[in-house]
Design a binder for these strands. Structure first.
Length: 426
RNA sequence: GGAGAGAUGGCCGAGCGGUUGAAGGCGCACGCUUGGAAAGCGUGUAUAGGGGUAACUCUAUCGAGGGUUCGAAUCCCUCUCUCUCCGCCA
């Protein structure tokens, strides 16, 4: 969300920036709305000022024992007018705020132009896709064959887009979580945090999921609790309505959480396997940065996420999203895409964004040093990484001709195994 | 789930329905004092929005939302959160 006075005085520049991402800002509508808002506000406030004066006078008159019945009738009438004006002003203000809350962030100058994913720009490519002397399988075949992945029972106990992991399949997921957390906390300087997996709607507003994207979320009945779609929501909101010490920034946090997404409107996309599930797990990286350092921090955060793939020996590429492909709150985003033999292509495994002050303004996250005035921090986040998709990448990239999967060296202590072999309960 | 207590400025803590945006203290900032420091003294010290080139001024805010009243931090109702006890529970 934008700062009110900044938005007002830079409407045309903002509209031009938003046009890059294909968002048409109706500047006339906003100007009108803003004028109406200010008129209503001024009217209500000046009437309030005279009521306050009249009321003070009644007070002092009554102290002198003078009858004030006439004044009281007059002020009572003013009160009714004020109520009406207030309602009007409030309605217009609300209309203005709602409209403003639905305006996406402006892309940073370094964001490539373009309309959709085809215009994204590859910034680096690391590793080479493995060559197989046999026909490699997709994980949705290989997993069930190994007995470590079970879609049928998941559909029975819950429904579509859920999975059950068995044996070393379950343990591989857990190994990846621990590995990622250990690297980020031990090597990259992140502080681990374990937040609630449900949040209230104020938090979702803070990070920008609400009001526009309620349909993508799961909401619990008869409460204001929502299942988190990403750890970004609880972790960024940790410091909502707080003022941080500018000198101590950046804060670098990492959190493991499950994530829940309704995937409304994605019918038919990634229907096979565990690429797109209603429930998946993620290790998330979140940074609170000084405004003058946030782009440097975005590079660092992206490198930290990439490092997991390097250590796992998985081939990937990093792309800079074009203006038209970026998320609502983001000013700049890098997607990291891992190579998946089952798709014979790259698939997003992390999305690293700088939101600048967009979320901080919505969530009231400020920082100041000494006596300086508090300013909004810049927030960043990225997956480090999506665990389910990393699981897929391991299984598919390290599969062998005999149907087993060799586990990368760094994971073996966590898995207590060198290889995934056929598993069966019986 | 049941019973009770509470929520006031950066913090602690007053507050009779009327000039209380809010006493007092602490903290913080600046100044005086000092060889320097402490103590002492003085001054200042919230946020958001509107108007104004500015000085400044107006409005709102005492957990949130309603209500009573000419007027509410103060009275009434609802909700949220925190704490204590009981029950249940990992």
């Amino acid at each position: 969300m934008y700062d009110l006075s900044f938005f007002r005085s830079n409407l045309d520049e903002i509209a031009a920036g938003l046009a890059r991402r294909g968002f048409q800002l109706d500047t006339d509508e906003f100007r009108q709305l803003d004028n109406r808002r200010r008129t209503a506000l001024t009217q209500a406030e000046s009437l309030k000022a005279s009521r306050n004066a009249a009321t003070a006078e009644i007070g002092s008159l009554r102290k002198q024992g003078i009858d004030t019945a006439a004044q009281q009738v007059r002020v009572r009438e003013m009160g009714e007018q004020i109520t009406a004006l207030d309602e009007q002003a409030k309605a217009i203000d609300e209309e203005f705020r709602q409209a403003l809350a639905r305006v996406p962030n402006t892309p940073h100058a370094s964001v490539p132009a373009g309309r959709d994913e085809r215009d994204n720009v590859e910034v680096r490519r690391v590793g080479t896709s493995p060559s197989f002397d046999f026909q490699p399988k997709a994980h949705w075949d290989l997993g069930p064959e190994l007995g470590i992945l079970d879609f049928d029972r998941a559909a029975k106990i819950t429904g579509a887009r859920f999975a059950v992991y068995w044996g070393l399949g379950a343990r591989l997921e857990r190994a990846l979580i621990n590995f990622m957390l250990d690297v980020h906390t031990g090597q990259h300087g992140y502080t681990e945090v374990l937040p609630p997996f449900m949040v209230n709607s104020t938090s979702l507003f803070g990070t920008g999921q609400l009001p526009k994207f309620a349909a993508d979320l799961f909401k619990l009945e008869s409460s204001d609790y929502w299942l988190i779609p990403t750890a970004e929501v609880p972790v960024t909101n940790l410091f909502r309505d707080e003022t941080l010490d500018l000198e101590r920034l950046p804060y670098s946090l990492c959190a493991f959480t499950p994530c829940f997404r309704s995937e409304a409107g994605s019918y038919g996309r990634d229907v096979r396997g565990i690429i797109r599930q209603h429930q998946f797990q993620k290790v998330e990286l979140v940074k609170f940065a000084r405004p003058d350092q946030s782009y440097q921090q975005l590079e660092q955060l992206t490198a930290d996420a990439e490092d997991i793939l390097r250590r796992l020996g998985l081939p990937f590429r990093t792309v800079a999203l074009c203006a038209g492909d970026m998320g609502f709150s983001s000013a700049k985003t890098y997607d990291i895409e891992v190579w998946l033999p089952g798709l014979n292509g790259y698939k997003e495994i992390s999305s690293c964004s700088n939101f600048e002050a967009f979320q901080a303004r919505r969530a009231g996250i400020r920082a100041k040093s000494g006596k300086s005035k508090a300013e909004f921090v810049h927030t960043l986040n990225g997956s480090g990484l999506a665990v389910g998709r990393t699981w897929v990448a391991i299984v598919e990239n390290y599969q062998q001709k005999d149907g087993t999967v060799v586990i990368p060296e760094v994971l073996r202590p966590y898995l207590n195994a060198e290889r995934l072999t056929r598993f069966s309960l019986a």
